[in-house]
């Protein structure tokens, strides 16, 4: 485990928020580390201090955790983290039940589900934090995505071969306006239980969707300091990038 304070600390910090990125070496393909960096930067912009813990397989768990992130990986990456994930399983379930915000992208979203069923029919159990089941699929679902979610429209890019199905009563993260989503058929994307969000969206998802970033930060900062006191942040560039993608993808 390494802990790095984000540079340029505010003069008077509103408090320190600890972020954990699960398996940054094995599970952060397609720029998913950009999510962690975006949150650390935004915390600073909002007047908070950020500490990012890179959690590697076999490393001790950090003492303070206010938000957990995970990304996508290759099959070899998933195999490498499986053992450590089993070690941390109860802890992660406990934190999730306790309301710690988590964002799990692609491969980690699948591992947070009930199970992954390989193309050959082998059933690999997941953490079961989200009630979803993923089945290996020979055709990849690839392309830009627009979602409607409770916190507004979200843009991103999906690239996954697994097809995910929500369990009975499992809330999705969003509804697909453009793209494939969980399985390309039922119009759902991702899953959300309490403060845990799973999604296939890379992009990475957080920089281009600042509302989602600040939603997660509000939960994390409230856990860390008892309140959320955001500052005025200029998101005009992010809004331009976001709106252009929405317009261009929903036009056709």
């Amino acid at each position: 485990m390494t802990a790095t304070a984000d540079g340029g600390e505010p003069a008077v910090s509103k408090g320190t928020v600890h972020l954990v990125h699960l398996y940054p070496r094995e599970m952060s393909i397609y720029g998913d580390l950009g999510n962690t960096r975006a949150l650390a930067s935004r915390l600073r912009w909002h007047g908070y201090s950020a500490v990012v813990h890179d959690h590697h397989p076999g490393a001790p768990w950090p003492e303070q955790v206010h938000l957990v992130l995970g990304g996508g990986g290759q099959d070899s990456g998933q195999a490498r983290v499986q053992e450590d994930l089993a070690v941390q399983a109860d802890r992660l379930r406990g934190l999730a039940a306790d309301g710690v915000p988590m964002l799990m992208i692609c491969g980690m979203y699948q591992l947070f589900g009930q199970a992954f069923v390989t193309a050959e029919g082998r059933r690999l159990p997941g953490l079961g934090i989200l009630d979803v089941t993923t089945t290996g699929n020979p055709t990849r679902m690839i392309g830009p995505v627009v979602l409607d979610t409770p916190i507004g429209q979200v843009v991103g890019y999906e690239n996954h071969s697994g097809a995910t199905v929500l369990g009975e009563g499992q809330e999705p993260f969003g509804r697909v306006r453009h793209g494939q989503g969980n399985n390309g058929t039922d119009g759902t994307e991702g899953a959300r239980t309490g403060n845990v969000i799973g999604s296939y969206l890379h992009g990475p998802i957080l920089p281009a969707n600042p509302a989602l970033s600040d939603h997660l930060l509000e939960l994390a900062a409230t856990r860390a300091t008892g309140s959320w006191e955001p500052a005025e942040v200029d998101d005009s560039i992010a809004e331009q990038a976001h709106q252009r993608q929405v317009r261009r993808l929903l036009r056709g």
Binding site: Y30, G31, D32, L33, G34, R37, I142, G143, P144, Y157, N159, H202, G203, P204, P207
Partner: peptide
Amino acid sequence: GRDVSWLYD
């Protein structure tokens, strides 16, 4: 490449 995620790497 249709995905610009790589810019964050």
